[in-house]
């Protein structure tokens, strides 16, 4: 009984999976660009206390609305100028990265747990469980997120934690849909039946057979939801029901600048551009991860 190892030595042409993905990532332009921009913004957030030239909360009413350096009236004392309360705009922008990322990741994390649990349960058990969960997902899809978020925040008040919690409790629908469909596909495989036939517990089947195969899709949805939560936070803050002042949220900065749009438009453009860059970068990274790890890309 000779083994059919005729197709060449499989280990000889073997690169570890991690290395293959890494090389493919380096060859993916969108992913690279997104990763660089995202990396810079994450660094900004992490090292904000070291990078920010001033205290982002310190007001100086004698130095209000100073324009950025590229304007004739600007100076290097405030490279991006100051806002209507005389706070250093660059420092606020740098600390604002913390808020945006915190909200994006926090909300995507909470909704990821809710959505994944629901999706995996629906996909694995099928039948009645699936019917009930699908109904809940449909009900959630029929709910206007911004309106509900506004109503909740208006009722119980705004704080960073509340915004994260509200967004986290609202944004799980895409996770649930994708995880349900992916789990159904995975469960049709014989390796799940084999695991059951070995006497595996439900926990072991989910953790060691289903989740590793969900991971790619989970990461892609998570990046989309991070970007989604960041935009929603900015929208809520712009409407005055997001992160409360004086926290330096980019959405709040746009909101606070809106009265000065005619004479000091940079108050809006600078945080607006940062939001745009951050969301774009996250989406590029998400798309890149999908392309790099998708089964079609595998040999």
């Amino acid at each position: 009984m000779a083994a059919e190892t005729g197709s060449g030595d499989p280990l000889a042409r073997e690169l570890s999976r991690g290395r293959v993905l890494w090389l493919r990532g380096l060859g993916h332009q969108g992913f690279l660009m997104g990763a660089v921009v995202l990396g810079v913004i994450v660094m900004m957030a992490v090292f904000a206390p070291l990078l920010a030239p001033m205290d982002p909360f310190e007001q100086n009413l004698s130095a209000r609305l100073i324009p950025p350096v590229w304007d004739d009236r600007g100076s290097w004392a405030h490279p991006l100028g100051t806002d209507h309360l005389g706070r250093d705009y660059l420092s606020r922008l740098i600390y604002g990265a913390q808020i945006s990322l915190l909200i994006g990741i926090g909300a995507a994390f909470i909704s990821g747990i809710i959505g994944t649990l629901m999706g995996v349960a629906a996909g694995y058990f099928g039948g009645r469980v699936d019917m009930v969960i699908s109904f809940i997902i449909t009900a959630r899809l029929a709910t206007p997120v911004i309106l509900v978020a506004l109503a909740i925040v208006a009722m119980i008040g705004a704080s960073l934690e509340i915004v994260i919690a509200v967004l986290g409790l609202l944004l799980w629908d895409r996770y649930a849909l994708v995880m349900r469909a992916t789990t159904q596909q995975i469960c049709a495989n014989d390796y799940i039946t084999a695991a059951k036939a070995q006497g595996c517990s439900l926990a072991r089947i989910v953790v060691s057979e289903i989740l590793p195969n969900l991971a790619n899709n989970l990461i892609v949805v998570a990046t989309l939801e991070v970007a989604n939560a960041i935009i929603l936070e900015a929208a809520l803050s712009f409407l005055g029901l997001g992160v409360p002042p004086p926290l330096p949220s980019w959405g709040l900065m746009v909101s606070e600048g809106k009265s000065y749009i005619l004479f000091d438009p940079w108050l809006i453009t600078i945080p607006g551009v940062m939001l745009f860059l951050l969301v774009l970068a996250i989406n590029l990274v998400g798309d890149g991860i999908r392309d790099v790890t998708s089964p079609e890309g595998r040999n």
Partner: peptide, 26 residues
């Protein structure tokens, strides 16, 4: 059991060693 389709009966995310060892762990 032994299944028909050897492509769907092995978890693509695990090594051969851990696939064979799984019942022992369980």
């Amino acid at each position: 059991p032994i299944f028909q389709d050897p492509y769907s009966s092995l978890n693509p995310r695990r090594s051969i060693g851990s696939i064979i060892a799984q019942p022992l762990h369980v």
